[in-house]
Design a protein around this nucleic acid. Sequence first.
RNA 1: GGCCCCGUAGCUCAGCUGGAUAGAGCAUCGGAUUUCUAAUCCGACGGUCACAGGUUCGAAUCCUGUCGGGGUCACCA
Length: 585
Amino acid sequence: MNYFSYLRQKILEVLLKLEKDEVIPKGLNHSHITVEFPRDPKHGDLSTNAALVLAKLAKLKPSDLAGLIIEHLTLLPEVNDAEAAGPGFINIRLSSNFWWDRLREIVADGTNYGNSDIGRGIPVNIEYVSANPTGPLHVGHARGAVIGDALASILSKAGYNVTKEYYINDAGTQVDVLARSLYLRYQECHGAKIEQMPDGLYPGSYLVDIAKLLKEKDGDKWMSASEKEWLAPFRKFAIDAMMDLIREDLDLLGVRHDHFSSERIMVEKGRVNEVVKFLEGQGLTYTGILEAPKGKKLDDWEERPQTLFRSTQFGDDIDRPIKKSDGNWTYFASDMAYHLDKFKRGFFEMIDIMGADHGGYIKRMDAAVNALTQGQGSLDVKLCHMVNLMENGKSIKMSKRSGAFTKLRDVLDLVGKDVVRFIMLTRKNDAPLDFDLRKVMEKSRDNPVYYVQYSHARCHSVLRHAKEVFEKLELTPDAIEKAPLELLSDSGELLLIKQMAAWPRTLENAAEAREPHRIAYYLIELSGTFHALWTKGAKEDTSLRFVTDNNKPLTLARLVLVGALASVIASGLQVIGVEPVKEMK
RNA sequence: GGCCCCGUAGCUCAGCUGGAUAGAGCAUCGGAUUUCUAAUCCGACGGUCACAGGUUCGAAUCCUGUCGGGGUCACCA
């Protein structure tokens, strides 16, 4: 359980009682009442601002109101004592029994501990990666992939009904370029010489392999064909091969989508036409001429009438074109159709994970969702900032042109999936992230991946060691039930329990704020508390050792503690897709 | 020029959606190793939360403006 919301509920009950007794007026707004960690642990386990928030409305002094609340709070069995402090906070100390009960709860729930139902089964669609099918993934894509995937797990654990989706941009001119690039490689396979890849085509060597496959399949059947004939089949072959490649990359990263949507199919089914017709019916389109953008020099700028969407009616800065000069729909138009499609599939809540370079796109997409769903659908766009790939403090430039183009697969080979996933979450998504290849491989305190994995491995090391010392020591449900947890009274031990007990709240907060990085930070902190307790037992006070040779009951209680910790860490790592290893190699 | 993001310790960053004396890691300095795996721990040093106003019991957090850094700005996707 989330003990913060549990205690908050208890406080609200006290307030109702006070209302009933006509000590305070009825119908006060409780929404600003919070229950949280006091900044200073000396202030107790929990702190609430209830008296501060309500004092004015109740026409009482904060300290007086606090006194009234405290009177009732101290009657609760889980509350040891409560006192007013500072400008009117109420500091609450919970009983040790309460904490030992939390420990039992953790062990009983295993990695399900922290599951929540705040999502109430609401369907949420989260779209991420959606990289163009024109080449393998690079490191920048990995950030969106990891953030999206972790967020999906978090929301799912918090009780939402999550669908993970990938939108394949297989309809624009870029995929024609891809087809042409493939055709050149195909010709090359049949002996033609390519001095240099023409400008604008994709030079990547991955197309060479695909051309070979195509040669095996079709032989020289396309060599004398006209572009009109080969373009479509080459495009399809290339896109399929690229998507296979991308799926392989994602698989290596441990990312799996539930659903792949194709832009091309969307267009072919006439979905874009439907959307535009709908907007026309609403009077939300018109033919107009946009002004040239300021601050950006465009040599080939020419004024031209375009079909525009009145996105300004929904908060956008300018109206946006939905039809290109060649008569095709813009990318924006098909993206509108795609989001409407998601909505029609039952997703009122949509999340898009995009790169920071798409920042300017949010307002128009938000406007579109608003217009198309008549305000019923909501779109939350999470922007992922740049990944600055480095080696020993020096930036490695990422570009498809230069040879230094850094493929995700190469980085995964080098450092492994766990490192990539964890490091991507060590910064909030809207800040740039440094990813230093050398640093993330270090096995030291600097490297949070190892720090956290080590704490998990250490737990298992303790459990293994205990089995050697005590024969027939099994953590069976019965043994756990009977374990004398009241022996866990050291401040370090209690602190560890308290932090573990905060896991459900951390998870719920991460889900509500949609901020996966909070999980990573929580795990680092929790690991730190454990390492400290471990060293305290190893050095300062050997009576704190988890495995105490001549004291089986005490050892048993501590093994419950260590086992619980292992399961909370494992649960946290699972949520962000990192392997909870039992041994460090 | 418009829009979006960022500005917190020498460096890299957290800060639980407005709470009490602003926290970690790195770096620097000083300690702990016959280990339940030191891939770890303990201590010291270090801040005008960019700046100026405003909102209120209370601001790193919300609002306005200024400065600085990054991204982005028809037809591409």
